[in-house]
Design a protein around this nucleic acid. Structure first.
Lengths: 248, 248
DNA sequence: CATTTTCAGTCCGAAATCGCACGGTGGCGG
DNA sequence: CCGCCACCGTGCGATTTCGGACTGAAAATG
């Protein structure tokens, strides 16, 4: 069922929220709410792109696959962004994968319609291109951060980024999965997470993580978190303060 | 002096070569040849972007700066690309740095004029957006490659990418600089380069490196080289074969 | 030609991480 | 209530890389 038939729900995707009303009105009927089930893959390497997604709650990991089957996380996409940038930039396939890391909902749009509509939505197009730039900056920072910074710093960064995109202070995540995202051993994450836990910054119980002290985490992470965060805030901050963005 | 006053030289930038004649004709008078002196910085973090550059010979390293002053290379831009993607995507400043890693020449264009002209050059715009996607893929691969793959593999990859963008089989490069690009110790590069040298893949003498066996290098590098190379070939291959692209 | 600087090769102990493996714990289904 | 299984904590030797330093050779400098 198209959203046009419904009273407007609370819109949470920050890109869409930033649009001028007339452009949003045009876009609105073409957006379809979809569920984002945990671990589902919405964008497979090599396959044609049929849709773009604007997360409302929950978020995606953007993964690059190695030939040994390992996946490396190169970026995150939550309600500050959009999944399917290649469609915007004129690619027909994707070689990265988008996997749901935290379940939730998104607004889906057909890739063809998206391409079509962009002609008539200059503000949308401009905004998305700037988002592509911000996302590019995120990936570039990840490249720089990987291999230079210590595991504990990178884990703290990852937790902060995840927390920014989570709805509450809490989310489902095992050491095993974090180790895959960070490209390290599971045991390594256990040790690093143990430090953070001992310091009182986080708490976990059976595949559930709760961030209890953001400033604490920020004090142990590397600068890479702040660099990416500020770039993102600068893009979206025109319409709302960071407080509105990341805390309900 | 503008290029319009001169007989057309041999154009070597692959993006520009791919343009349809009528669009190129419009662009041509606005391109100004500039030298790319070794190590010169053409795009400084935080500063407004005044120009975009299309390398003809030589190439840039794209660097992310850490707060300790270290620089991490996140991508390369040679004659297959363009320096100044943020201008295309609507950013006014850059937070990455473009440093000349191999000296040569480029065609410069004013950023404002570039933005203006894009409205009238649809093929150019489309091509550049696709290039932005390819470059994004390169950075994403670098993120995945850093920290997962061994130094020797990454060094081989770097040498191959540099060789692709170099004019001959030879280029100026010290262990010291490669270590900075790869984010490892200089001594580490010496050891890894020693392996490659012993295997007969490369040869060096006093800050000069010569690639003597490309297939050999390709046999020891990780898949990351091929993944990025193929994406780039796919973008530019419409107009020329890979042979024309990378070997004079 | 003598001096200085740059570059490459090597060695050391230390740190981080790896790969593997074992044991404990707690939730959940039978 | 019990057993299973996902998850977490931990230990150990091996490997890679680090940080620092020293040396000789080659190139640049004066």
């Amino acid at each position: 069922m198209a959203l046009a038939d419904q009273p407007p729900p609370i819109l949470r995707n920050r890109l869409l929220m930033t649009l001028p009303p007339e452009e949003f009105a045009r876009l609105w009927p073409q957006l379809e709410p979809v569920e984002l089930p945990l671990r589902k893959v919405f964008q497979e390497p090599g396959k044609p792109l049929t849709s773009v997604y604007f997360p409302e709650t929950g978020w995606f990991s953007i993964l690059a696959y190695m030939e040994d089957g390992d996946a490396a996380e190169v970026g995150l996409v939550g309600r500050e962004g959009m999944l399917g940038l290649p469609v915007l930039l004129g690619g027909d396939t994707e070689d990265l994968e988008g996997m749901v890391q935290a379940p939730g909902t998104a607004l889906r749009m057909d890739a063809g319609a998206f391409r079509e509509e962009l002609q008539f939505l200059p503000a949308f197009r401009t905004l998305l291109l700037r988002y592509a730039l911000v996302h590019h900056g995120q990936v570039a920072r990840t490249a720089a951060c990987n291999g230079r910074h210590q595991l504990e710093q990178r884990l703290a960064r990852w937790l902060l980024m995840a927390h920014d995109r989570a709805d509450g202070g809490e989310f489902t995540m095992t050491h095993e999965f974090m180790s895959m995202m960070l490209g390290v051993r599971r045991a390594g994450v256990t040790v690093a997470a143990g430090q953070l836990s001992k310091a009182g910054f986080i708490r976990y119980k059976g595949g559930h993580i709760e961030v209890t002290d953001r400033p604490g985490l920020e004090s142990v992470t590397c600068e890479c978190y702040g660099v990416v965060r500020r770039a993102c805030d600068a893009l979206l901050g025109q319409a709302a303060t960071a407080r509105d963005v990341y805390r309900r």
